[in-house]
Amino acid sequence: MDIQPTALDDVLILKPQVFGDHRGFFLESFNQKLFAETTNSSWSFVQDNHSRSTQYILRGLHYQTQQTQGKLVRVVAGEIFDVAVDLRRSSPTFGQWVGEILSAENNHQLWIPPGFAHGFLVLSPVADVLYKVTDYYAPHYESSLRWDDPSVAITWPLPPGVQPILSQKDSQGFAFPDAPNFP
């Protein structure tokens, strides 16, 4: 597994080794011991999630204010633009974001620790996204940051004139200055 840092402290790109031949391919998508060693953490995962979305659906930017979740995100069909926004007030990158293309073709994964908002935009006609989380879903602690907040200024790869498709909840996310954040 090749681990690469991003512009945000603690957010990492994981690139598994892929073994392919005329039959197809094999990759180890997760190994707890290797994950702990390479991320220098003791996180363990309690839940796996799977979402399927169509092109230009934007999910997020989600986080939980308690029972905070770290997420290990990967795509098994299609392609997404995956985003993390640092909501840790004590961080030197507070309020900054990073985005990565994750696809079934590149097999990259993004590790987003607790303290970040997370969202993604589907770039392909359909995308299946799998992600492991470090704590259980707690809807009463769920929050959402506006996808288009000007103070965060995420550069979403949308064609000119195309608006993302949002859930009602996501269209009513907090503006960054009003969003609950972390110490």
Rank of each mutant, 00 (worst) to 15 (best):
S171H: 09
A7M: 08
F94A: 09
S90A: 14
P5Y: 12
F19W: 06
Y63C: 03
N107T: 07
T93N: 01
A7F: 02
E142M: 06
F176D: 03
T134D: 00
L121H: 10
H140M: 08
V75T: 09
F45N: 08
W111V: 07
G161W: 11
Q109M: 13
I57N: 11
I154Y: 15
R52C: 00
G24Y: 14
S167Q: 13
P157R: 15
D2K: 15
E37V: 07
L87Y: 06
G115N: 07
L110I: 08
A127F: 04
D82E: 07
K15W: 09
T65C: 02
I13M: 01
E28Y: 08
Y137L: 02
Q47I: 08
P157D: 13
A36Q: 15
S44E: 14
W156L: 15
G70T: 05
Q67P: 00
F94H: 14
S90L: 15
D149P: 04
S91Y: 02
H140D: 13
D82G: 00
D149A: 11
I165Q: 14
Y136V: 09
R59F: 08
P92D: 01
D9R: 06
L110V: 06
V18Y: 08
S41K: 11
D128C: 02
E79W: 05
H118I: 15
T134M: 06
N40A: 10
